[in-house]
Every structure is written in structure tokens, then in C-alpha cells.
Simulated scan of single mutants.
Amino acid sequence: MSGKPKLHYFNGRGRMESIRWLLAAAGVEFEECFLETKDDLTKLRKDGSLLFQQVPLVEIDGMKMVQTRAIGNYIAAKYNLYGKDLKERALIDMYVEGIADLNELLMMHVSQPADKKQEYFANLVDKATNRYFPVYEKVLKDHGQDFLVGNQLSRADVQLLEILLMAEECKPDILAKFPLLQSFKARISNIPTIKKFLQPGSQRKPPLQEKDLPSVMKIFQ
């Protein structure tokens, strides 16, 4: 039996992508078992693998872990991406929760009805540039370090880079007013394990397209 973590999800970003990012940043190789039909999901439910009947599911260290935040916390703690003490961990948690809120907005963009897309996009850009990005720009300025918390890479840095790149996919100039975030993006992207994950052919997933939605919905409906 392989010692690599095994990720169960559909072949796309969704709620598993942040977990892929964390493992990749830690330099951990992982296997993926893609759900392709509703039967694949039903089988996991019936064999007792899904505590709350839903994915993501990650098999790691003899556990079958569900719930995205729990999985992320475990991986971050296991691979030294969770700060050096409780105060740093609290900061990391705060920053990650804000990133998760923005991630929800970004993920839902593709599934908006055609007549709502423009309004949704405007709201997304407004919240990103007026609520979320100013926070991280200020954190970097006030902290004065290369990283958001302490003086080493943490889960917060990894997830922030992920969300910055996702936002730029929606609007390429979205970081125009945030010079520290631009520098942060370039700096963290150049960390060897992350640089590798950003190369073509890695296990990073492309943005979900509207044409992909029917096949994904068939799994979960």
C-alpha cells in the first residue's frame, strides 16, 4: 500500500484545490482518485468512507479525513505550515478564513445564470478589491516580512497565492492597486515546491468552465 495521501474528488478544483496546494507546497507527493459518476460517490458513502456523506475525502496516515478545513489544518500542522505558537496559528486561521470566503465567491462565479453573471462579477471584484485584498496588503506592510505570519512560509501564504492567481484569471489587472501583493505573488511563486506546482503537467487543476458543469453536477445530484 502506498504511503502517499490519496485524494478523492472530481477532476477539477472545487474544495480540493486548496488541499492540493498545501501538499504541493510541503513537497508531498499525492495520488488522486477521481469521481466520474454518481455511482463513484455512492460507493464511498455506502462503504462508510464519508463521515458526513460528502467529499473532499483524503486518506492520510491511516485516517479517512473529510471537511476541507480539518484536512487543511492537519496537513498544515504535519508539515510545519501552521506557525510556531498559538498566537501565530490564530493569525493564520484568521487570514485563511478570509481567503476561504473570497474563494467561495470565485468558485461560484462560473455557475451563475447568464442574466446574473455581470452583476455577480461586479460584486466579486468589489469585494476582492475593497474588502479582502486591502487587508492582506496592510498585513504585509505592517508585518514587514516576506510572509504573512512570522518569518517562514505558512498555510496562509500558500492559500493567499492560490486566491491571487484565481482572481487574476477572472480579471488580469485586479492587483493593480496592490503593489505588496504583487511582490508577494512573485516571491511565493518562486519557492521551489510551489514553482514546480505552477508548471504545466502538475496536479494543479485549470479553472472550471461552464461546459464542465453538467458532468460535475451529474456526480453530485
Rank of each mutant, 00 (worst) to 15 (best):
N11F: 05
G48I: 09
L41A: 08
K127R: 15
A128V: 04
A176T: 14
T193M: 04
L106D: 00
A156G: 06
L35R: 03
G48T: 10
A186L: 13
K196L: 13
S49E: 07
V55S: 01
H143F: 10
S49K: 15
Y74H: 14
D126A: 11
R89P: 00
A76M: 03
G98Q: 11
L22E: 07
A25E: 05
Q199Y: 02
K64E: 11
P206D: 03
F34T: 07
V216I: 14
F147G: 08
K117D: 11
K138D: 15
F197I: 01
Y132E: 10
G62T: 09
E17D: 15
V66Y: 04
I99H: 03
A70N: 06
L164I: 11
E29A: 13
N123Y: 09
E137P: 00
G201I: 10
G27F: 03
I163G: 02
P200W: 01
H8K: 01
L57G: 05
V158Q: 05
T37E: 05
M108H: 11
G12M: 07
L7Q: 12
Q54R: 13
A24T: 12
A176R: 13
Y136N: 03
R131P: 00
E104V: 14
E17T: 08
Y95F: 15
K171P: 00
K6A: 14
Q118V: 14
Q159A: 01
Q221S: 14
R15A: 10
L161A: 07
L198V: 09
K46V: 04
P192F: 08
K84F: 04
D126Y: 12
R89S: 11
S154N: 06
A156H: 04
R89L: 03
M16P: 00
D101R: 09
Y82V: 01
Y132H: 12
G98C: 07
I219W: 02
Q221E: 13
P56W: 06
